[in-house]
Amino acid sequence: MDDFFPSAYMTTEMDDYVTQDPLDYSGDYDTGPTQATGMCDRSWVRQFRGWYEPPLFWTIFTLGAVGNLLVVWIYSTVRNRLKTMTDVYLLNLAVADLLFLCTLPFWASDAIKGWEFGRGLCKTVSAVYKINFFSSTFLLMCISVDRYIAIVQVTKAQNWKEKRLFYSKLACVAIWVISTLLAMPEFLFAQVKTGLNGTSFCVMVYWNNANNRTKILVLTLQICMGFILPLLVMVFCYSVIIRTLLRARNFEKHKALRVIFIVVFIFLASQLPYNSLLMVEASQAANATITDCAMVKSFDVAGQVAKSLAYTHACLNPFLYVFVGVRFRQDLFGLIKSCSRRMSKDEIPKISMVPIRPSVVTDTETTPALSL
């Protein structure tokens, strides 16, 4: 999609523009000054992308679609209405992941045979991808805040129950608006670029200004808003939750701690490598120091792997944040059991909501606690 360290190897069809961001494999060669040769052969990187990305993207798309559609189905048919803050956030998270997953087939096709869908769809798909990237991370952040309130501020959580539900819906509206604003660079700078081999690609093409200020600003905004801010909030909330649970005399304490560590670990494992490379790229845009062709190709490949790792979060979210909830699992198993009895299509499965052990993932009527 985009390109690491293009300042060392620029091919500009338009004098006023330069390419950016992670992964632009728009041509097999990029000309420019290098320490080794005057021309960097990057055809192998292009071939690697065509071999590596499509099967992985389709796998993420399939698994993520099944998991997130199940979430939407349960909330829309079994529960009928959103009762808690967590319900609101989880439903919006599933919708955001589904919209994000819808962009992966386009990028899979782009990796194999280039961009064949026109400039308008290039901008739209790029913007939709970035909107749902930001909204997903913001929603994960809100879920951690909601768990903090439910476990650490138990009395306030009970007293402000109705207000919390209203505020959660308001927060979701704000998240979608802010995410759309943060995706404006995709609307402005996404272009269809033709490489030296005649193949077209959908890439980010930034205005060529002093010291690549536009590129650095966009990358910095993505790193800070899409990774550092949610990470700091999640670390703070879960740290306080862990301290509270350690003091509590609760037989579910160890299960709760396990869920927290898994959630934070998966977020770091999927997002840290990609954002680390974005930091290096922003630094490179400010002061180009990497000019060796082999090094550039290595970072290109690393960017592909890190990007695809970040994408896996879309198919893991249902299992991390929804399916671990006792109530949701009960709803799902009841729905499967009802379907197995070949119920008529017009009959909505009725699942008895028997009392269960509370779970922070489901934010039940009583004091929540994480469970697996």
Rank of each mutant, 00 (worst) to 15 (best):
P55R: 12
P55I: 12
L56W: 15
W58H: 15
F61K: 07
F61C: 07
L63D: 05
G64C: 02
A65P: 03
A65F: 14
A65G: 04
N68F: 05
L69P: 12
I74N: 11
Y75H: 15
Y75N: 07
S76P: 07
T77G: 05
R79Y: 12
N80W: 08
R81Y: 01
T86P: 04
V88H: 04
L90V: 07
V95I: 02
V95E: 00
A96K: 03
D97N: 14
D97W: 13
L98K: 13
L98H: 12
C102W: 07
T103W: 00
T103A: 04
P105D: 05
F106Y: 15
F106K: 11
F106M: 11
F106W: 11
W107V: 13
A108N: 10
A108D: 08
S109C: 12
S109V: 14
S109T: 13
D110A: 12
D110K: 14
I112M: 12
K113M: 06
K113I: 11
G114Q: 05
G114E: 01
W115E: 04
E116M: 12
E116S: 11
F117Q: 12
G118R: 15
G118M: 11
G118K: 15
L121R: 14
L121P: 14
K123L: 09
S126V: 11
A127C: 13
A127T: 15
A127S: 09
K130F: 10
F133P: 07
F133T: 08
F134C: 10
S135G: 05
S135P: 04
S136G: 11
S136D: 06
L139W: 02
L139M: 01
M141W: 01
M141R: 09
C142D: 06
I143L: 00
V145Q: 02
V145G: 02
D146V: 03
R147M: 02
R147K: 07
R147C: 04
Y148Q: 05
I149W: 01
I151L: 06
V152T: 08
Q153S: 09
T155A: 07
T155C: 04
T155G: 06
K156L: 14
A157K: 09
N159A: 10
W160P: 03
K161N: 01
K161F: 02
E162Y: 03
E162A: 05
Y167E: 04
Y167H: 07
S168R: 02
K169Y: 01
K169H: 03
A171Y: 02
A171Q: 03
C172I: 02
C172E: 02
C172W: 00
A174N: 04
V177Y: 01
I178F: 09
T180P: 08
L182T: 10
A183C: 10
M184C: 13
P185V: 10
P185R: 06
E186F: 08
F187M: 14
L188V: 15
F189I: 08
A190L: 04
A190G: 08
Q191E: 05
